[in-house]
Design a protein around this nucleic acid. Structure first.
Lengths: 179, 179
DNA sequence: AGATTAATATATCAATTTGATATATTCTAC
DNA sequence: GTAGAATATATCAAATTGATATATTAATCT
């Protein structure tokens, strides 16, 4: 249904660190957390309007080099809402693995077709894992900085699970290749 | 946006094995693939209506023990659509880990609050991993059956990634507990 | 036996989110 | 100088969720 807009928490979290525009927020999401959470303009802009109405954030119109920009700042009420959400240990961790769906129904298409899907998945994961390992290596040198440490932990989650995915690809290929 | 109803493929895949009602489909999803794909009545029933209109499935009204039931069967056109989808190697694998979101913004709430979220996540994963291992153990004895083998592979994916999650929980706790 | 609860079964709704598209300006590269 | 990439905001239809409504049958309890 959508009683609680989760995108609100992403935005409040990002704004708790710095003043940002909708466009900036999209860039931050794509650049740092997109491997476990995505967000589109179609949810970001309406959320910003709604949260300003609710007094969780405030906006400022700026004009940088003639380019109009609306930047947002978190309010005390916004920080409280963010903290309340953090305190709540219940969390919905949802996955939609179309690759696994194709494997599950693999019998309909046959082994070769299923192997193609797995190969494609493996290629994507290998590429993304390399990027994550790069982040991990850099972040591990700055674990004394609190924010860097939390960022490191999410990246480490990505690395560990992607490594597990690759092991699975190997197992799957072995099982599907043998006669 | 939602150009391609992914739920259609789940339903077509399930119907390729057996004749099912909307309620049955929901049970199959919950019981076998829910750890990597979920589906709600709010998407299942409209999909069934639309796909019947499109000639991908046909319906039959049954009355079992006085209880009305509408069961669906896949058509040749439906099987073709399913096969076309299987042949396409591109797949969207989307995650929404609210737990990781809470870890990422952990600096706002502090170490103790973050640890609580991780502990709660770990408890859930441990419970689900036990169930998956049970499935895996049973399915591994029937790998000569093609359908069981594909099912086994998805379960194996779950086991491998959940094990990686637990390793991450351990690392996270160590990093957050010290000092 | 009677009553309550759980399970079966279908359907619909508002709210959320996605992915696409529209529009317009500024910066960069050839 | 102009084509294309990047910046910036906004809106829309379609898909999905989670809740709720409705009704019947099966199972459990006292």
């Amino acid at each position: 249904m959508g009683k609680e807009r989760k995108i609100d928490m992403v935005i409040l979290g990002l704004l708790s660190h710095e003043r940002l525009s909708g466009y900036d927020i999209k860039k931050r999401i794509d650049g740092t957390i997109s491997f476990f959470w995505k967000g589109s303009f179609g949810s970001i802009y309406p959320s910003l309007s709604a949260m300003e109405e609710e007094g969780l954030i405030t906006s400022t119109n700026e004009s940088i080099n003639g380019r109009d920009k609306i930047t947002y700042e978190i309010t005390k009420a916004g920080k409280n809402k963010l903290k309340e959400w953090l305190k709540d240990t219940k969390a919905t961790n949802d996955l939609k693995y179309e690759t696994l769906l194709k494997v599950f129904f693999g019998g309909v298409g046959g082994k070769e077709i299923t192997l193609n899907s797995i190969d494609s998945f493996e290629t994507d994961i290998k590429r993304d894992l390399e990027i994550l390992r790069c982040y991990q290596s850099n972040l591990s040198k700055a674990l004394d900085n609190e924010d860097h440490m939390y960022y490191y932990l999410t990246v480490s989650f990505g690395v560990k699970s992607y490594e597990a995915y690759l092991e699975w690809c190997k197992e799957a290929r072995e099982l599907l290749s043998k006669k």
